[in-house]
Design a binder for these strands. Structure first.
Lengths: 263, 263
DNA sequence: CCAATAGTGTCTGTGAGACAGTATGCT
DNA sequence: AGCATACTGTCTCACAGACACTATTGG
């Protein structure tokens, strides 16, 4: 028979396996209904939201830890995942500066955690931010041990987040925009087949500005990494759009040297 | 009277002030004699070279720690300094995989450090790489406590470095190239006044490819952030080049949105 | 027929790249 | 004068941006 453990106890025991003082946080980007979204967790017994994150095992590469978090929250392997910045200010560990973020006080009061665990969790942490690009349709979000919900939230109405997580999201977005031409945006965020409008709206969502339809189409087709498929009959009273998919070999070749977008 | 301490003892005592498990390493770029250079340290009693680095004080922002290292090694304040990547693989802490890198064994044998200090120094570290852009002429390199030399070395003949420091330099270079248009390359690496050829050679050194002289000049002048000054009489049998300097207000404005270079 | 969206064609301005031509400083 | 390097002008091609035109789907 398998030994049944108090899950809270095992969580506390597990902390010994992890490096103290370092964590990782993931900004997982998805795209749905013409909006950029990120995956967020909501704590148990408390309305505050946070980024999916975790700690680094003593024998585990930091990148591996980020990948583990991604797999655990989304069920997805082998998607685009990369670190973008490390957050190491002293201020970020001041957990109690905002009453909204007192989730650890909550745990403290409820005596769920031992004093030792609380001390471990509330000391100074340096966290490395990772960002991932995933196809929302393929994900099956799962909360972690400390959370009640794990949901996709539109970037436009991101709630106030734990600690400095709002800053982390901001920096991830900047990174996304600056490195746009070096990231497999389309192939990661869209389903296998998509319309030209889908692709354009995605770029518009990231760049936060409208793009000219006909020029966008001409440019993308000229880059020669899209395969055109059958038309998509929508039932609407207008011409049906073609479906496209990426020729991944050509696409990745271009991504490496930086696609020459200059919108 | 000031108390005179055994310097080695104070170094060991100081370690208590620092976060255990995190470090920072700086790739400090300079430009001299038409070559890109980086600042390196050579260990005492041992030929191995390494990047200037340091630890993070328990009450110190990580960025501050990087700035402290930069100031201590170069004497320079307020230069361009930014983190570019964090290195967190388990493998990087395997200090002894290469006989060339056994400087800690050396210290061990010479019994310079206590067993406790050696344990502290040889445990797993996650290091954050920073890169800086400085004007070599303004620097006065100083070795740190563990080093005998602190010198500018041409990137072309970088010696084998401690641990994964060669990888760190590589990643810093990639970062430099990809973010070229967002970094104050010229104004940071060149002296106040310079010729157009100096600037072109700098870009060529970074991009590793020749640029067309007349087009480079036309493009840079059109961007309208260079002030033209008197000619520089070199004594050579040819036309003397103008000296230029940056109009920092216009320059920084352009840098923020990404200079439209597309060489 | 009309309305709405998809897709293609055309014009203009800008700029990169190539290269020719002119200017200047020294022997 | 001659040489070497600095600087400027010109030509061509590609492409971004604006916008007009055609095609297709269903009411």
């Amino acid at each position: 028979m398998t030994k049944i453990q108090d899950p809270m106890l095992s969580f506390e025991e597990e902390l010994n396996m992890y490096l103290a003082g370092n964590s990782i946080d993931c900004v997982i980007f998805g795209y749905e209904h013409q909006e950029l979204k990120i995956l967020l967790l909501q704590w148990k017994h408390h309305p505050v939201w946070s980024l999916p994150g975790g700690f680094i095992r003593k024998d585990e590469d930091m990148n591996k830890a980020a990948n583990r978090v991604l797999i655990e929250r989304t069920g997805l392997k082998s998607v685009y995942l990369n670190q973008f910045r490390t957050f190491g200010s002293v201020a970020r560990s001041e957990l109690h500066k905002n009453a909204q973020f007192m989730r650890l006080d909550l745990f403290k009061k409820s005596e769920v955690f031992s004093a030792k665990t609380i001390a471990w969790l509330t000391k100074r942490f340096i966290t490395t931010g990772y960002f991932a690009l995933v196809d929302i349709e393929k994900t099956s979000p799962k909360p972690d041990f400390l959370s009640a919900k794990c949901e996709w939230k539109s970037l436009k109405d991101t709630p106030p987040l734990l600690l400095d997580h709002n800053d982390i999201v901001q920096k991830a977005l900047e990174h996304l925009r600056i490195r746009l031409n070096y990231l497999p945006i389309g192939a990661s965020l869209l389903p296998h087949k998509f319309t030209m409008q889908d692709l354009q709206k995605l770029y518009e969502a990231i760049l936060q500005k409208p793009l000219e339809r006909s020029n966008f189409q001409r440019k993308l087709l000229k880059l020669d990494f899209l395969n055109r498929h059958e038309k998509q009959m929508t039932g609407a009273a207008n011409k049906a759009p073609y479906l496209y998919s990426f020729d991944m070999i050509k696409y990745e070749k271009l991504i490496k040297q930086g696609i020459g977008f200059s919108f």
